[in-house]
Design a protein around this nucleic acid. Structure first.
Lengths: 344, 344
DNA sequence: CTGAAAGCGCTTACAG
DNA sequence: CTGAAAGCGCTTACAG
């Protein structure tokens, strides 16, 4: 069943070249140092034997013997390749693929992880995690225990997005949503908005908290009313009436789109709109949505670079590495945030 | 560097449970057959020891010892996760991910394969191919040598798309483009089109040949003129004039889109248009493009099912498996193929 | 019922 | 300069 008839091993090569299997290994790995000196003739003989054959090193054996695998794990807390998730994961995966290509690594997607409570579990009975040299974690929310355990086991990993759900410091590469939020609020104030309504889903993620913290820091210019909303936004027009808000900010572009529909129906489409998240490709009634542009390709590249750094550094020497990195995005001034009372 | 401080092995578990390492392995793999009989008490003791610890079986060791890995390889001849390639690969990858989830397999993307002449190479010095139990191949064109070698080595694999570039029979799951092409040509004839122009890029792929063969089979109803085109379609209006074609069919939707632009500029937008390929999401001047709907998710599912079958069958017993499968798509009657001379 | 031993294919000290 | 040997963590005959 797992017979490998076509499989050539180093022993076979050694037999053909008339050397020991050790020598074959040496040649293959270019071990040519102080103690080891293989004459070009021998080296050439081995090389030829390998070329004649279809020899390929068994990656499982290499791994077991302690070598790096050049395999990077990719763990997503939800399915990553569905049409819906592509909006979020697409640019990240693209960046990861490119980075992996240039690092010469393969990518192992842990699609087998059993789903519990709507999320995949990283650790389970037969996890292939250890087959990877390290792992990238993706997802809006992550499991604190998973993170703790990865840290405890000194397994090299990097989370995409800021993380703060653990005691131990978790390596991550994320976006500075706090700074972006502040900038956008400042802009709203400049445009004359004194009262803003912020609608969100009360998610318990670090980035969600970053937005709220930035809003708090802004104090009263503008004054922001927070509102937790569910799937039904019917109460939105009333909320706007009660608060006197002239602008509605939402957690993400999809929520803005939903809000725009409700407001349009209620004839309240003069309010300004913005998302405190990536807005690329999102338009509201023909206008470019105001929000952020986040460098997701760059995040992916940076995450893999950090991961490589961790992999190639012994656990006790990782102290010098800056493991928490926040990248700056930029505010995308679309056409949905306009001067208060200004023309639509 | 590859120190694994947090790593627990079976030996460690055995020590804790006061049994031999062999017994731990037996318990873990539920080996409970004729010769082997482990009392529940022992079994329980081992189970508890495992749960107390953070033991996870080393996949490399399992693999080396001859077990399946539950890892399926995914090899694409081009980058798969770029925004452009998503149009083609997206639905396939989505289907593959879903199938892998339900099979309990992880997915290994061979992103490390070096690129030569614009295509990745499957076999190379340090390929991790063997780490996978089997492999799915994706790409419009594939390397005949790769396919031959996979067959020769009895490595389980399945190509997506019909293949005919080898002597040996290659396992594949594809779409029956020939049948679809025939149907569409018949429809064109019904609509009164006597002369059709087929523009293509002269690709040397099986599906490209399938289309041409079907056109040939159609004989003269309608009469189809073949034209190989490059990036510049400027000569298209002239070609239409010379042939008297009332409809232009193209190899794929993108080529139709390019043609439509040229024809629009030339004021020749009364000709009918269709693609002999997937057209989902493609519109020409506000009208749904006529062409095919191909069940790509289903192809992916079928390909992985076939792959699993091959993996779990010894090479010499694979004779009974139907390894070449053509799925039927359906013609998508959009609004760009209209009656000859009819209103646009 | 359970353990000691061989083996999977590789790498790396360690002896020659 | 090169090979015999140990070891990576596991599975599976084979003996008790």
């Amino acid at each position: 069943m797992t017979a490998k008839p076509g499989k050539v091993t180093q022993r076979e090569i050694a037999r053909i070249a008339g050397v020991s299997q050790t020598t074959v290994s040496m040649v293959l790995n270019d071990r040519d140092g102080s103690n080891i000196r293989i004459p070009d003739a021998t080296r050439e003989r081995v090389r030829r034997a390998i070329e004649q054959s279809t020899y390929v090193a068994d990656p499982a054996a290499r791994r077991l013997a302690g070598l790096d695998n050049k395999i990077l794990g990719v763990f997503t807390y939800e399915s990553a390749l569905t049409p819906e998730s592509m909006d979020f994961y697409g640019p990240l995966l693209n960046g990861i693929e490119r980075a992996a290509e240039s690092l010469g690594c393969d990518l192992l997607f842990f699609t087998s992880s059993p789903v519990e409570e709507g999320r995949r579990r990283l650790f389970h009975r037969n996890t292939r995690l250890r087959l990877a040299d390290g792992c990238v974690l993706l997802g809006q929310q992550m499991d604190g225990e998973d993170l703790e355990r990865l840290v405890a086991e000194d397994f090299p990993f990097v989370a995409v997005g800021r993380r703060d759900e653990t005691e131990a410091p978790v390596p991550y590469v994320g976006i500075d949503y706090g700074a972006l939020t502040e900038t956008l609020l400042g802009r709203a104030a400049e445009l004359g908005h004194e009262r803003v309504l912020y609608i969100h889903r009360n998610r318990n993620s670090p980035t969600a908290r970053d937005r709220l913290a930035a809003i708090e820091r802004a104090g009263h210019s503008p004054a922001v009313t927070l509102a937790v909303v569910g799937d039904d936004l019917a109460g939105l027009p009333r909320l706007i009436g009660e608060t006197g808000a002239t602008a509605v900010f939402a957690e993400d572009a999809f929520l803005v789109e939903d809000a725009a529909l409700v407001l349009g129906d209620a004839g309240a489409d003069a309010v300004s709109l913005a998302a405190l998240a990536e807005v690329r490709g999102h338009r509201i009634g023909g206008r470019n949505l105001t929000g952020f542009h986040t460098p997701r390709q760059q995040i992916a590249a940076e995450a893999l670079a950090l991961l490589q750094q961790l992999i190639s550094t012994a656990p006790d020497e990782r102290g010098g590495i800056e493991i928490q990195r926040l990248l700056q995005g930029e505010v995308a001034f679309g056409e949905t945030l306009t001067a208060r009372g200004g023309a639509r």
